[in-house]
């Protein structure tokens, strides 16, 4: 599946929820099921500091594919982190750089990625793109 197919899949999953409470409960479940994050990567280098919650993002790059693992200290934030990892992880740098992210808005979580919320999520998304750009230019120069 490409990035847009995954986004459409997420939109479909969220479409079954009647109200915000169900959506948030689902996000909490997603947050709980987010894969483990290696404690040794919980360093300032991989920390994306929000005023309200913290996000850690660790990239690795192998065979032209970027894998992200991520973590947050707040559970709903973690749920959204899980969605972003699902969309962006296991992609080529070019796919990430060219991606148009629309699912957040469609599933009614736009406010969580506003600059004023300061939960680390917007910065996390920017950071994922920056890693992709860096790996892309590395590819082009090697």
């Amino acid at each position: 599946m490409n990035i847009n197919e995954i986004q459409d899949q997420i939109i479909e999953e969220f479409a079954v929820f009647g109200d915000w409470m169900e959506r948030y409960e689902y996000l909490i479940d997603l947050g709980r099921s987010l894969g483990p994050f290696d404690e040794k990567h919980k360093t300032p280098e991989y920390l994306i500091e929000g005023c309200q919650s913290k996000v850690w993002l660790y990239p690795s790059f192998e065979n032209g594919i970027i894998t992200f693992s991520a973590e947050s200290d707040a559970l709903i934030t973690r749920g959204i982190v899980a969605l972003l990892v699902r969309v962006f992880s296991g992609r080529t740098p070019a796919e990430i750089v060219d991606a148009n992210i629309y699912f957040i808005e469609k599933i009614g979580l736009r406010e969580n990625l506003s600059p004023t919320r300061s939960n680390g999520l917007l910065a996390m998304m920017k950071q994922m793109r920056l890693y992709a750009l860096a790996y892309k230019s590395k590819q082009e120069h090697s």
């Binding site: 915000w20 948030y24 909490i28 559970l75």
Partner: peptide, 13 residues
């Protein structure tokens, strides 16, 4: 042990 942001977001709704 609930994070303040999690609680605040639910209360907001």
């Amino acid at each position: 042990t609930i994070h303040q942001l999690d609680a605040g977001m639910i209360l907001d709704k």
